[in-house]
Nucleic acid binder design. Structure first.
Lengths: 270, 270
DNA sequence: TTTTTATATTAGTCTTATCTAAAAATTGAT
DNA sequence: ATCAATTTTTAGATAAGACTAATATAAAAA
């Protein structure tokens, strides 16, 4: 049986690989808030168990088996987060912590029932993709706000579970699906000046915060469609689109900004 | 922090007290499937922690503090069971196992949100009372089927989480709220002959099974109301009651068969 | 190439929860 | 009151995870 502790190691290694950081003992130790020696020990055990390959100074790589387990935890985590928000009315900032515990306690059946209840969702409340039951993940094509040029954007994803930070973003109106324009990036690692679609006052976001925020240009310049810039929407002229319609557009945009791809697990012979 | 293991000890002791069995090391060891020596050890630790009083050969008694914790777990367990059944569509027999794990993983907030979502329910899918957030419990006035005299009964509660057993009962139509008549008890510890309201064929239920089933006479002879036997319902004469109405009657009956009372915790100075 | 620095490992403890086997204590029966 | 049966406790181990302190190794810099 795989313990909660092992599940957390695997999950953390997967996340580290996703960020193309090295899954070294020291990195993982920092992420899990344990001593380096503890990770060395665990890496040796996990290698013996066939869940990862480990080369000192190079880092750990999940095996097919280890990756599958990690993806399952990730799926659980994200479905649970969405459930907490949609069904139990949790706030954006509250879902992560609770999911951290629940992800180790729920059965396969539970997860699949959640999936059904939530109507097979694609993303969690932070905009992260939910792996499917086979471990496949859609690939996001969003870009990091810290690297974006001035222009119009839709917020897609926030890579943090920290309640403080998330509450802050929420107060600033920076939640997934919200639109804003990036007016300019102030020099010398300065903050970003942004303008929400819904408000007049400009806001300033620190570079560190911007590193955790991912966006797509608005409207998305999807292949095979003419650039929307050539046909600016006749705003205020005809009747504004209804809520339902807006939701549908939003959904379509979201889907268009992703591309389905096999999870690495299936290409990675153990 | 209280570990999952400790939570399980406290819960098991509470259940044992409820059944007025002695919470001896050996009894608890059997219930938890651990060695006697393990329980001795744990009892000593829990006593030191102020969660129970323990006298060898006499048994353990929960302190106010220990009881409060146990009642919280019980509340979680039962709310989770109901949630699994009502919201995630789990079967009667499946809810217990999943709840056993989840009860140790959910936060206070989660539990209170469930309570709200389920509209502050009184009983779980097995007919067991759900303690309120303060640990108060309604007291059931049902009787054990194994001790019942021939007559008309409504099934109220089943004291088992065993999926096999519950599936069996379900197949026999013995689920909470169902009505049946106990025709006779066969001699020499023989089975009980019962007749479901909804079917012609008699069924035979072993005495062991009957010990886990609790019932109230149908219709309930609540104080301050005339016995319903004096006024047999004019069945088939006027229009049958609708579903909604039936549900309401059922609900009222259920409530009438209970009486609110302080949980022992509040009378028990540590 | 040698030194410095960063990273990783080993060795020895600790805690929690468990076990088995043997010893001790209590209850109940004769 | 004494013995047998039951119940409980002690003692000594084990396994999982984690720690600290000391050591070793690889990478980077001089």
């Amino acid at each position: 049986m795989i313990s909660i502790v092992v599940e957390n190691y695997l999950k953390t290694i997967l996340k580290t690989e996703d960020q193309s950081r090295k899954a070294s003992t020291s990195n993982i130790a920092r992420d899990l808030s344990v001593a380096d020696a503890t990770v060395t020990d665990m890496f040796q055990k996990l290698q013996k168990a066939g869940l990862l390959e480990y080369k000192p100074y190079y880092g750990a790589t999940l095996t097919k088996q280890g990756r599958m387990i990690a993806l399952k935890i990730l799926r659980r985590h994200r479905l649970i987060e969405l459930f907490l928000q949609k069904v139990l009315g949790y706030g954006w900032a509250e879902v992560h912590e609770e999911a951290e515990k629940l992800e180790h306690a729920v059965s396969e059946l539970f997860v699949e029932r959640l999936d059904q209840l939530l109507n097979f969702p694609v993303k969690d409340p932070h905009g992260e993709v939910i792996p499917d039951a086979q471990g496949f993940r859609a690939t996001l094509e969003d870009i990091c706000l810290a690297e974006a040029k001035p222009g119009e954007y839709t917020l897609r994803r926030v890579t943090s579970g920290d309640p403080e930070f998330l509450s802050y973003l929420e107060r600033e109106g920076l939640v997934p699906s919200n639109r804003f324009s990036l007016v300019e990036k102030l020099p010398f690692q300065g903050p970003l000046k942004i303008m929400l679609k819904s408000s007049e006052a400009p806001r300033f976001i620190g570079l560190e915060a911007a590193r955790k925020v991912y966006v797509t240009p608005t409207p998305p310049l999807a292949e095979g469609r003419r650039k929307a810039a050539d046909h600016p929407p006749a705003r205020g002229r005809r009747k504004a689109v209804g809520r339902r319609q807006l939701a549908e557009i939003e959904r379509r945009d979201t889907l268009l900004s992703t591309r389905h791809e096999f999870a690495r697990a299936s290409q990675h012979p153990a």
